[in-house]
Amino acid sequence: MPTLEIRDLHVSVETKEGAKPILRGVDLTINSGETHAIMGPNGSGKSTLASALAGHPKYTVTSGTATLDGEDLLAMTVDERARAGLFLAMQYPVEVPGVSVANFLRTAKTAIDGEAPALRTWGKEVKGAMENLRIDSTFAERSVNEGFSGGEKKRHEILQMELFKPHFAILDETDSGLDVDALRVVSEGVNRAKDNTDVGVLLITHYTRILRYIKPDFVHVFVDGKIAEEGGPELAEQLEENGYDKYVGTGATMA
C-alpha cells in the first residue's frame, strides 16, 4: 500500500534577511485512501509544508526526510515528484498565457503516464470531468488560469486531480475564497477522486467548513511549524468551537 511518510522535516524559506526556519520537525504518515486534515492559524507553516513537498524552489529542506512508497521524495525534481504520484492543488494557481487548458491537460497527462492518453477516451473523460465540476466546455480552449475567477481556478485544480489520478494529493487551502455552491462542487470532485482511485489526501485548511463535505480520517493541528495535536474528526469540532487560541496562546511565537 503506497505511503507518504514525513519524518522530522525542517524547512526554511529564503528571505532578504537570510534563511528563515518555518517548519520545525514535522512527522506525518499518510496511507492510500486516508484523508488527513491539517488545520492551523495563519502563518503556522501549513502551506509551506505543501510547497516544500511539491519541491518549490523557494523552500529549502534543512533536515528530515519525506518518502513516497519508500522513494526519497526530496531527491526528486518537481516534475519527478508529480510523476511519482504526488499532486498539489495550489492555493494560488498560476496563469500560463497562450497555453490552452486542453493542451495543458493532455501534455501533463502524457508526462505523468509516460504515454499519450488514448485520443477517443481522453476527450470523453475530460468532457465528463468538466461537466461534473460544472466547468463550461469553452474552458478547454482558454489559456490556463488566465482570467479565471477564484472559484474557476480551484475547480480547474480539482479537475486535474481527477484526471491525473495521483497516489497522493495535497489540497492547499482549496476551500479558501469559495462560496458554498463552489465549495460543494469542489468537494464532490475530491470525493469522486477518493472513491475512484484510493488517493491519499492531505487537506490543508484554515476553516472547518470544508470538513463537512470531505470527511477526514485524521485531524492534525499545525502550530509554529509543527504538529501540536492530533486526533480524529472530533478534533475539528473542538476547533470549530474554540478556535486556535489555546494553541497560539501557549508559547507559540508568530514570527
Partner: peptide, 10 residues
C-alpha cells in the same frame, strides 16, 4: 513550477 508540478519536464 506550476507546469513542472504537473509532471511536465523543465
Amino acid at each position: 513550477f506550476y507546469l513542472m508540478a504537473r509532471g511536465i519536464p523543465e
